[in-house]
Design a binder for these strands. Structure first.
Lengths: 206, 206
DNA sequence: CGTGTAACTTACGTCACTGTAGGTTATCGT
DNA sequence: ACGATAACCTACAGTGACGTAAGTTACACG
């Protein structure tokens, strides 16, 4: 006979969010079922409805938490330093997130539910790219580049690190520092001037 | 009273594939229903089962067709020329595909069904990146680079163009040639040596 | 030591979709 | 013109998930 522990509202809420993140990561939004989430939390479905109103509500909370965290980390990494250091820092921050929060990353890469009837599905990471784009616009103006091109580069960089992150999740072979060095070398120097062995960035504190 | 045209087996098959691509593009695999596909084709569900055995079978055919086409186009674009021309050609080929076959592209970017119980979901474009990686390994060896890093760059480039392609699908503002010029400039020269206005590649015949 | 409230469960109704069995109609070849 | 066959449809059974109503149990607090 298992002890069916009875948790406080906030504790159960937190636990459900954790469990939901895992399930959404594994199955994607559509294929995930509240049944599985409730089962894993050793609870029945009505509990989930009580706390989050339904599947969409729970998903929204998970997403919001994850986006918040990721964007904050990237923003911190790009807050100071030379342009090159910002790029490398952002790449490292992103890949570190991929390493330390694989489930969260998986949720962000999977399809979001089709909310608005009009368009298709939007990758959550598009939002991240847009925020990066805002940062780029300022830099582009300052450097005399066409600010209309900024979104292109922002999305390109986010796409780079996202795709590499997905690949790295499977292989896990080179360290994130090494991978980040390669990526930022590509982004900064280009294939034309690629160094034989990119120098790793010294790890940041915290 | 609408003429319920009776088609030959192969014609109906072709039509169903076309319709299915649109529906899978809009809804993603999980949320797509054979019901909607059959309705749009002015047919009832059993017809679909007769031809493809079910949802997975139909999806498999759509995917196979699309992958085949995309990979062929990229391979052609990377078949000859200087390294830089190959990069730019590949980017342009990819973006042209995005422009001319938005539904196919959407299908490829959406989640694939979780076939194997073990892992998560695999983006279809990972396969594309792997094939590009094979091409890169040869070039890397020839140029004296570590071939183990080749997959990183391959995935980075595919991710770049994929993400930008997704963004471009929404905005449709700069022409694909312009976008391809920006992307290949980034990939080749890097942010460090970015030109003020990347030169467009002359359009290829056919 | 009761008692009220928060946490949780059992039970139910509904819906959308899948997959299949068996019957119906158009159309092609002769 | 008329059968044979391919193309198609109606109808049904089953499944899994969503969402809700009403009842039950554990725990805090006077």
């Amino acid at each position: 006979m298992v002890f069916r522990q009875r948790l406080s509202a906030s504790a159960r809420r937190a636990q459900l969010i954790d469990v939901a993140r895992v399930v959404f990561a594994k199955r994607g939004y559509e294929a995930a079922s509240l049944e599985e989430i409730a089962d894993r939390a050793k609870v029945t479905r009505p509990v989930v409805y009580e706390h989050f109103g339904g599947k969409e509500g729970l998903y929204a909370v998970v997403i919001d938490r994850e986006m918040e965290y990721l964007v904050r980390r990237i923003a911190e990494a790009m807050a100071s330093g030379t342009p090159r250091e910002r790029i490398e820092g952002a790449a490292l921050a992103f890949l570190t997130y991929v390493k330390d929060h694989p489930d969260g990353f998986a949720v962000l890469t999977h399809d979001a539910p089709a909310t608005t009837a009009g368009g298709g599905m939007s990758s959550l990471l598009n939002d991240v790219a847009e925020r990066v784009g805002d940062v780029f616009i300022a830099s582009f103006k300052a450097a005399g580049y066409d600010p209309k091109a900024a979104p292109i580069y922002a999305h390109a960089l986010v796409g780079m690190v996202t795709f590499v992150g997905q690949w790295w999740t499977d292989t896990r072979k080179p360290s994130v520092e090494e991978v980040a060095a390669h990526i930022s070398a590509l982004a900064w120097m280009g294939l034309r001037h690629l160094p034989k062995k990119p120098a790793k960035l010294t790890a940041k504190k915290a």
